[in-house]
Amino acid sequence: MSDEALLAGVALGDDDAVLKFVRRYQRRLFGLALGIVGDAGCAEDVAQEAFLRILRHASVYDVRRGPVSSWALTITRNLAIDALRLRRSVPTAPGDVVFANLTSRGTGPADIIESADPAAPVWSALARLPLDQRRCVVLAAIYGHTAVEISIMESIPLGTAKSRLRLGMARLRDTLVRESS
């Protein structure tokens, strides 16, 4: 069953659809929250709150704004960043294998996913960014770090962190637009 159909079921109060939706998304929402807040207890709080909001607002999801996954992940990401601002003092580089893959030299990430994955073009565009820009984009977009935090983590001036982020985002966007047309 498609994500959209599941959400429609959730909106109509179908408990079976709720359970299926939670099972389909819990690893992704929890994983995203964990990557940002870095603590399993806090990540569970964030992921649960995100699920409750998604389930409660299933009827306002607008299919024309993009996939359900992006909507659900963006809600989770925003909540995680909120939670993080209240607790993170010293920024540290993520220790998970995805970060290592996303930011290693070569095309690493593109090798480990199937081309049928809807995120495949994003992985491959990311793999072609210069390593320094790629690290900044990943730290900001996936792990919720600010430019100030990135400048500390990468031991670079703030202006450099901001410009790497801006250049990396612009190049990624241009690559994806070019390849989808």
């Binding site: 709720v18 992704r28 569970e44 992940l73 963006t74 990943v138 996936i142």
Partner: peptide
């Protein structure tokens, strides 16, 4: 683009009992 990038976030196994705690709250 920001919405697409968040799709690349790592997945992780939620703690034991995550699903039942969530469904109870819901």
């Amino acid at each position: 683009l920001a919405d697409s990038l968040v799709e690349l976030a790592p997945s992780a196994e939620a703690p034991v009992g995550f699903e039942s705690r969530l469904l109870e709250r819901y």
